[in-house]
Amino acid sequence: MSTLKMGIIGGGPGSMIGDIHRITATATGKAKLVCGAFSSDPQKSAEKGKSLGLSEDRIYDSFEEMIMKEANLPEDERMDFVAVTTPNYLHAEICTLALNAGFHVMCDKPLSFDLEEALALQKVVSQSAGIFAMTYTYRGYPLLKKAAGLIANKQLGEIRKVRVDYSQGWLSQLIEKEGHKQALWRTDPKKSGNGGTIADIGTHAFNLLESVTGMKVDSLCADVSALVKGRAIDDDANILVKMENGAKGTLSVSQISTGEDNDFSLHIYGDKAGLVWRHTIPYQLHIKYPDFTEDIIQLEEKNEETTSEVNIPGHSPYFTEGFQNIYNAFFQAIESKGQATEETFANTFSLPLIEDGVRGMLFIDKAIESSDKQAWVKLDF
């Protein structure tokens, strides 16, 4: 496989997620960054591009310019794929332009500004020759893939109870009023969409619940709230869920849990055994039995970041490895295009696709609807 040429849209000075995409995609030498439109401010885009050693003629002032000019370059020069790392409201437009221009796309989550955009983008993907994937990062964690395999093989038996909790505390104060860059757009409904925390980390929790259990959420009853006074968008959500097989459970997400860095946990209980995974110890998977004994599946503990170039508060080295595993699956899909089917890609746990993104947007839409109505709602269109 030849080295793929990467472009980035977003990820300008001060951005964390753009650096994560760049570092993890290029870590194994399977990809090389060749171009970027790093900011809507041309000066900031130029600053970032130059710091990465890019040629001036491959640093663009806008994503429109970048996609158009890259598409007009000879095939052996232009980028092969683009990583979309902008705020949510730009995702669908950028992805549509890139796919229509013949490029593969890796998009950050959530998929789009709203469900309508997501469904329109899904049609574009279905008609495109390009591979479209998303960075639901935890899908790249090796023990979560292992957990999905155990459940698929019925080692827990019939699933009866599920519980997923994702708690952060970085929005416990009204830091958007102080000009905090990440808080400014993530708490702005014009850039984030209708969902705040429910979109930012709620979609992670929802995607992991469905992908690990191998089951869809059938219906939910949600309480979606803005608990910090003066905030324009939700920062906390507590949701009852019913799975398609009748299993019951809860999904709780919060970014106002004061003092919490990145506390993420998944509990799944069947009639034969239970399974527990915690982000605080991501290298351990606990399998619990009716007699109160347990097996611990354990990987090597990693004490240092896999890269010194990026600092990810609250995350273990497995976070960057998870990103890298998703990119590796993405590269395999690109290489296999034409030989493998879309079903093959969809069955790859470590490669979230457009369907995952659409389900995430449906989840946001229905959770907010349920909260507004104070009623159970079905997760269907």
Rank of each mutant, 00 (worst) to 15 (best):
L4D: 09
G10Y: 05
G12L: 02
G14R: 10
S15H: 15
I17R: 12
R22A: 03
T24L: 08
A25K: 08
G29I: 08
A31N: 00
A31G: 03
K32E: 15
S39Y: 04
S40R: 13
D41P: 06
D41W: 07
L54W: 01
L73G: 00
P74M: 11
R78C: 04
T86G: 07
T86W: 08
T86Q: 01
E93I: 14
C95T: 13
L97F: 14
H104D: 02
M106F: 12
P110F: 09
S112K: 07
D114K: 02
L115K: 04
E116Q: 13
A118W: 00
L121I: 11
S128H: 00
Y136M: 02
G140Q: 01
L143Q: 07
L143K: 05
G149N: 04
L150Y: 05
I151M: 00
I151P: 01
A152Q: 14
I159N: 00
I159Y: 01
V162K: 06
R163M: 03
R163E: 04
V164P: 02
W170G: 00
W170P: 04
L171Q: 09
L174W: 10
H180A: 11
H180Q: 12
D188F: 03
P189R: 05
K191Q: 12
K191M: 11
G193A: 13
G195Y: 00
H204K: 05
F206T: 00
L208H: 08
L209F: 01
E210P: 07
G214N: 01
D218T: 04
S225E: 15
K229D: 15
A232N: 13
D234T: 10
D234I: 14
L240V: 13
V241Q: 02
V241C: 03
K242H: 05
E244A: 04
N245F: 12
L251M: 08
I256Q: 00
S257W: 09
T258H: 09
D263Q: 14
H267N: 15
G270I: 06
G270Y: 02
K272C: 09
T280I: 11
I281G: 10
L285K: 08
H286G: 06
E301D: 09
N303P: 00
N303T: 14
E321Q: 15
G322W: 03
Q324D: 03
N328V: 13
Q332W: 11
A333W: 08
I334S: 04
Q339W: 11
T344P: 00
F345A: 09
I354N: 01
L362M: 09
I364G: 03
K366Q: 13
S370T: 09
K373I: 01
K373R: 05
K373H: 09
